[in-house]
Nucleic acid binder design. Structure first.
Lengths: 351, 351
DNA sequence: TCATGAAATGATAGCGCTATCAAATGATTC
DNA sequence: GAATCATTTGATAGCGCTATCATTTCATGA
């Protein structure tokens, strides 16, 4: 009688996928050679390499990323945590990242916090579970648990869009406080007396807070009354700009200049002014932020503060790559790419 | 003399991360118990479970997703492939997915093809390498290699935004051809004679092609001249709408109605009409598509065809979950959620 | 009292890949 | 022709986790 066969423990498989071994056996070569032909082609001699790549194409083999990531101790992945995709502010930043990272072999994984407190902490923990090679976050305000985790991960961390705090590792952006200062100085310089701010999350979002801080302190310096803040926790949109303008004018009908947290808000306010036949800029000057497309397409065109979002993304990507190539040490921790005030029709009578 | 010690092969580690074993040893329990406490808490008795969760929090343990995915034969991940994030058309669809998938334990991984041919094929291959539990694609046009891979993966595939082709597995969307028919019938019904189409990627994007097909065939039925098509390969934007209008009017100054491939194009065209003091809708009627926010915020408001993008995303997510729970068999393969024409100021004089 | 089985926990074997080292092969030099 | 070295390929041991089965514990009833 035969001895009882040892029953093989079978691990689950969603379906029998073609594995490295299948390809290797098919050609009668070692698994490592196939692995090399795919990952480090220069280490495999020409005739074999071609045969292997053919076999890969023929069998439809796809690398199992989980296995690869486990074996090599990390995944060529860069998670990017954004506040939201509901307005297009962060898309150019993503473009910047996409313009350099994929070419260097990194995949980008986009996630959004939707400005919800605590979301970032969970996201960071989850994303670090992938063992990514680096990570990109928005802003420099994070819970201490998040900061601890990021430091523990020992991977490059790039915080984008803001240079206002102390970076965990490196930051690339611009100073929101300086934006607030520039806006207030500019509007005050136009001779405006009652300068207000319309934005979202004025007390929650740290970038808004910094902008408002710079704005208020400058108004004070200029001997002007403290600016009214009209804010909402809704995401920024044209309609919201319209509604916040209505609310603001109820509180302070004498308002003669407004700085906005985003151009879509400014556009909404402009539309509402036009509806009410309030003359812009004669009666109220409007200054937007971010230089979104809509600002230069409406009539009158909306003055705005242009932010180098695409460049921020690109530089963030380049810093990561520099880090992986081992020459990042010399770079300063916080890189300020500045911003640019663009004077258009809503603050200046166009000839 | 001691025998030469076998030198342990060391695998690389980006940094010593806390592992399951660390947590287990710390508490003097088995690894499986810790794993269970995290993944199937009901299988671990109360006092121990709490101790384990405490230890996890204390040590900052994060599950290694690659190891977990490898061991369990798949990752609770749903990749979503979109055409682009450069306009906000697809964001509500994402919202819909986010409203159901994370609650059911799935992570969402967003990627974009940017309408580049071949990108989708590469993306699908890469993404399937994660062994995801399901996948969401835009549209029903894919290369045969992509279709083959998707079928081979044996996971649910949901194609969203379009019901025009034969789905690989299931599709949720609406008929772009019906949109074109509705638009043409509506504008013809207003008595317009020279009806044109302004859009992007008119010959490349299959959804545009289908819309145009329905549009042209309906004009023909109505005994109207073939509609002029003014198209560009740039991404849709306000400025592009303005430029395409200029080009169109050069080709055919008698144009009295235009159907647009997206509302931002319609807005740009409206702005250009206003600049040229062309009366809208008296001289030219404008009909947009997608009912983006800008359509209802400009003056006159832009008539548009509203598409149920959020619902499409939500339903796609629900179909996936139904599949995982084993009760998807009864659902029809292609679900048409329809669309709605919204009559506003650019096609109808408002009282 | 002891069988009986449910509930809780643990030991073990891979998942599919890559790092590492060993071996084989070929090229080069004296 | 042998020694030396670079190039190419292969065998093996994990990476950290979970599925599976084995074991232990404990309540239950005859």
């Amino acid at each position: 009688m035969m001895p009882p066969e040892k029953i093989l423990k079978s691990s689950p498989r969603l379906s029998h996928r073609v594995t490295l071994k299948d390809v290797a056996d098919d050609l009668g070569v070692g698994m490592m050679t196939v692995s090399r032909a795919l990952n480090k082609p220069h280490l495999v001699a020409e005739p074999l390499r071609t045969r292997i790549l053919d076999a890969v194409a023929r069998t439809g083999y796809v690398q199992n990323r989980a296995a690869s990531g486990l074996a090599s101790g990390g995944v060529p992945l860069i998670p990017v945590i954004l506040p939201t995709l509901h307005h297009s502010v962060y898309v150019p930043m993503l473009d910047g990242l996409y313009s350099v990272l994929p070419a260097a072999g990194f995949e980008i994984l986009v996630s959004c916090t939707e400005y919800l407190a605590g979301t970032e902490e969970t996201l960071v923990a989850n994303l670090l579970g992938w063992n990514p090679r680096g990570i990109v976050l928005s802003g420099t305000d994070h819970t201490s648990a998040t900061i601890a985790r990021l430091k523990q991960a020992k991977i490059p961390v790039i915080e984008v869009m803001d240079t206002g705090g102390i970076p965990v590792d490196r930051s690339v952006g611009f100073s929101h406080e300086a934006v607030g200062i520039t806006a207030a100085n500019y509007l005050a310089g136009l001779g405006r007396q009652n300068i207000a701010y319309i934005g979202t999350l004025a007390e929650i979002d740290s970038r808004s807070i910094r902008r408002i801080r710079g704005f208020q302190s400058t108004l004070k310096e200029q001997g002007l009354p403290e600016g009214l803040i009209q804010s909402s926790s809704e995401p920024s949109s044209i309609g919201l700009g319209r509604r916040l303008l209505i609310q603001l004018l109820e509180r302070q009908p004498a308002t003669d200049a407004i700085f906005f947290g985003n151009d879509d808000l400014a556009a909404g306010a402009l539309f509402e002014c036009q509806r009410r036949t309030i003359k812009v800029p004669a009666q109220i000057a409007l200054l937007g932020f971010n230089d979104l497309e809509i600002a230069s397409e409406v009539t009158p065109t909306i003055s705005s503060i242009a932010t180098p979002r695409r460049e921020i993304g690109r530089l963030a990507g380049e810093l990561l790559i520099a880090h992986f190539e081992g020459n990042a040490a010399s770079v300063q921790r916080s890189i300020d790419l500045g911003f640019r005030l663009i004077e258009r029709g809503t603050t200046k009578i166009q000839l």
